[in-house]
Each structure stands twice: as C-alpha cells, then as structure tokens.
Amino acid sequence: MTAENEREIYHKLEAMKEIRNKTITLERLKRSILNEVRSGDQEGRCLAQYKREMELLQQEKMSHVEELRQIHADINAMETVIKQTEESMSRKLSNASRLHEDYRPLKTEVDLLRRQCLGLERLPDLHEEEGSPITPDRFPAAAPARGAFLAPAPRKPPPPPPAFRSALEQDFLTVSLRQQPPPMKSCLSCHQQIHRNAPICPLCKAKSRSRNPKKPKKK
C-alpha cells in the first residue's frame, strides 16, 4: 500500500468520524426541535383554553358589574323611599299634634258641660278607647299658662233639675216610640208577616182578612 492510498484512507476515516459526530448532533437537534414543537403545540392548546377561561371570567365580571349596578340602583331607590316615608311620617305626626291641640280644649269643654248639665262622666281619652293606636304618652301634656294657678279638683256636680230631666225622658220616650215596629199579622195563605191593615199580601197577592173585622155601625 502506497503512501497516497494511506492518506486517502486516512481522509475517509476522518470524514466518517466528522459525519458521525455531525449526524449525532443533527439527531440531537432534530429531537430537540420535535420536543419543542410538541411542547409549543401543547402550550398553544393550553393558551386557547386559558383565553377561553379569560373570556368566561370577563363575562362573569360584567355580569357581576351589572348586578352591582342594579344593587346600587335599588339601594338609591330604597333610600329615596325611606326619606319620603320619613317625611310623610313626620308630616302626619305633626298634623296629628296640631289637631290634638284643637281637640284637647274642646274635649275639656265638652266634659265640663256633661258634668255640670247632665251629671255624666267624662268622655274617654283617645288612648282609653278600644282599639286605639294612641298611647298615653303619644302627645305631651298641656303645660299650664305662666302665672296661672291650678284650679282645685271639681266636686261632683249636682243632678240636673227635674224639669230638664223630664224633658230628656220625654225626648227619649218619643224616640223609642218612633223606633217601634208597626203592628204585623200572618198571611193566611203564605203565613208571612205583613202589615196588620194590608188588604192584599204583597208576597202571594192573596186577599188578607182581618181576624177582628170592624162591625158595621147600627143605623
């Protein structure tokens, strides 16, 4: 074997060694590329899922924002209703207090007239009436005028005069007589109650006969 052949064989061996090393490196790079591509595709699929989840979260956020906006609107409306109700309550209680200022002296005057003229007890106060929503401390007591002396407790008034009492009894008797029902009788046909002097029953249209007919006058 000549020296030229040896050099050629040596160059081929060197080339084979270089090819082998580069082929190994190439395979390593190829596997790395494939792994990176597979990982990239997997990350892409995950990224799509993440974006979808982000869209859902944004939609949920907007729904909560709308709910919060509606809640704030309801709160503002309720605050307005509460304010209007408080104003209406204050206005009605103020009107009641003002009316009570007119009611108190008038009731005192009526109670005084009942005691002095009729010997009757006083009318019940507002909180003493059955089913009344008014409590004893609802309205403040009337303060006595400055410089005024408290009047002594009134004695039991004397009974009304006999003439006045007779007039009251006569009026009561007249009203009672007016409220008495008219005389009635039973219909002989339908047995319903009809007026004693009715000639015909208004229900069955039958002629009605009196049980005690008037006797003809003798000439």
Score class of each variant (00 low, 15 high):
residue 1 M to D: 11
residue 2 T to F: 10
residue 3 A to V: 07
residue 5 N to E: 14
residue 13 L to G: 05
residue 18 E to V: 00
residue 20 R to F: 01
residue 20 R to A: 12
residue 24 I to N: 13
residue 33 I to A: 12
residue 36 E to F: 11
residue 40 G to E: 14
residue 44 G to M: 01
residue 50 Y to V: 01
residue 50 Y to L: 14
residue 50 Y to F: 11
residue 51 K to A: 00
residue 53 E to P: 03
residue 60 E to A: 07
residue 61 K to W: 02
residue 61 K to T: 09
residue 62 M to Q: 15
residue 67 E to F: 06
residue 69 R to A: 03
residue 69 R to H: 00
residue 71 I to F: 08
residue 80 T to D: 14
residue 85 T to K: 14
residue 90 S to L: 11
residue 94 S to L: 07
residue 96 A to E: 05
residue 96 A to Q: 06
residue 97 S to M: 14
residue 98 R to M: 12
residue 104 R to Y: 13
residue 108 T to K: 08
residue 117 C to T: 09
residue 126 L to K: 06
residue 130 E to S: 11
residue 130 E to T: 08
residue 131 G to F: 01
residue 133 P to H: 02
residue 142 A to L: 14
residue 142 A to Q: 12
residue 143 A to F: 05
residue 146 R to D: 15
residue 153 A to H: 12
residue 157 P to D: 05
residue 158 P to C: 11
residue 166 S to G: 01
residue 168 L to Q: 15
residue 168 L to A: 13
residue 169 E to A: 04
residue 170 Q to D: 03
residue 172 F to I: 01
residue 175 V to F: 10
residue 179 Q to H: 01
residue 188 L to P: 12
residue 195 H to K: 15
residue 197 N to D: 13
residue 199 P to Y: 02
residue 200 I to T: 14
residue 203 L to H: 14
residue 205 K to V: 02
residue 213 P to H: 04
residue 216 P to K: 05
residue 217 K to H: 05
